[in-house]
Design a protein around this nucleic acid. Structure first.
Lengths: 237, 237
DNA sequence: CGGCAGTTTGATGTTACTCAATTTAAGTGG
DNA sequence: CCACTTAAATTGAGTAACATCAAACTGCCG
């Protein structure tokens, strides 16, 4: 029998929410058999969920990069955060039918969907899952609050450094990094929409960073030349 | 026997997390008896919890106003949100020992503390509490994401309108409002720190709002003259 | 009456945005 | 492999939004 469980065919790292729900042993096959979970592949640029869309499933990103965002009436958009392999789209979606944000694939992605009802009943039965969820919830809240502080108080340089710093840390938790070179599929426009600047200004700031030999972002790779300086610029408090 | 339960001596509105934990009938007296919950009064301006502070309790604001914030090394501070009566300090604190933010009393406040262990065991036993918590969690996430979008994409006028709009809605859910006059204890500096502007600029924008007869903020009261215009300015998407 | 915290106002400086032109990079089909 | 096309990044000039600094004004309380 072919194993199509969400996380068997794609790299996993650490014990996240996904692992907790599936259990790390045995239970995996049952999921596929029960039909309460599925796999999907989505090409780069395609929207995965829309704001206010109701879904009986919750989503976990298995492979590639995505991002959550809010689109404003006049076309402006704010990227709320980037999704990396293993990330649950949001803790709220475990309980709420509708998403309050939209999600797009940044690269080609694999996503795993799990029936909400099934996850909820497992949640009731297994305190391990509750703990994993609580952990994710805290971390979401902390990141959100830090983002608010960065957007409210930081200068352009600081905001961009803050974003790059956060992302490199999350990437490093999932990949082996050699020579401070991080896989980095963002365009400057994504950086701009994430930190509330224009793409033109992001280009200028990145130019400065390049000249100062702090970081260099090109060709889908981020090279960090001066971690200390990046931290100095981008670390809150 | 005197009833000192958290929410018996202070106004409650709707069925929030606090009510769910205590139950709406009978159980109230047992809390006081068991000693797992307490009341505290804190004067205006005093700090209630500090970032990274560990606490065996979780906090609910019973009366007055407070605010959550992050303080940066160089003195800048970002107000993450305001706490109104009935508000849990944060969902994360139900599971995490340490706060990732600080909290100050804006006015004189009454706060209720509940032993985390007790809340957790009630949580495991009663799905009603889980649902209340999930609700709070979703709402925190939504508000946080909207704040991020507002800070990233909105102009000064829009941000301030957004803040005032949010607060008036939350105040109205807890008080009877006559003539569009809302109790409003914020100083302009608080508005500034919440929306990432300087107090001077906030003063100018509020001056414009006053001249245009949109809103007027003074003497601890916010008068909304033109709700439609406020919504036009401050509503996302 | 004096002192203090908060607000208002003006003048000036800085940061980041806008618009537009140019360069670079990445495909695509012949 | 090379012209052609297209998306992304860079650069410059001018402008708008917001910050900074400093002074004056207000209301409140001892």
């Amino acid at each position: 029998m072919k194993n199509i469980s969400p996380c068997a065919s794609c790299p996993r790292y650490g014990v996240g929410f996904c692992d907790a729900v599936l259990g790390r042993t045995g239970a995996i096959a049952s999921g596929a058999a029960g039909g309460w979970q599925h796999h999907r592949v989505v090409p780069a640029g395609r929207q995965i969920v829309a704001r206010n869309q109701a879904s009986p499933d919750l989503f976990v990103l298995c492979n590639g990069w995505g991002f959550r965002f809010l689109q404003l009436a006049d076309g402006r958009r704010q990227i709320l955060g980037f999704l990396l392999p293993g990330d649950l789209f949001s803790v709220a979606s475990v309980f709420e039918e509708r998403f309050h944000f939209s999600v797009k694939a940044l690269t080609d992605v694999q996503i795993s969907t799990m029936r909400r009802t099934e996850v909820q009943s497992r949640l009731a039965a297994d305190p391990t899952i509750v703990m994993a969820l609580a952990e994710t919830c805290s971390s979401e809240a902390r990141c959100g609050d830090e983002m608010i502080a960065a957007l409210g108080q930081y200068s352009a340089e600081e905001r961009i450094a803050f974003l790059l710093l956060n992302l490199t840390e999350r990437i490093a938790a999932r990949n082996v990094i050699r020579e401070q070179q991080y896989p980095f599929p963002l365009r400057q426009q994504h950086v701009a929409d994430a930190v509330g600047l224009t793409a033109v200004h992001v280009s200028r700031v990145l130019g400065v960073f390049r000249d100062r030999r702090v970081v260099e972002m090109s060709n889908g790779v981020l090279k960090v030349h001066d971690v200390a300086e990046l931290k100095r610029l981008g670390s809150l408090s």
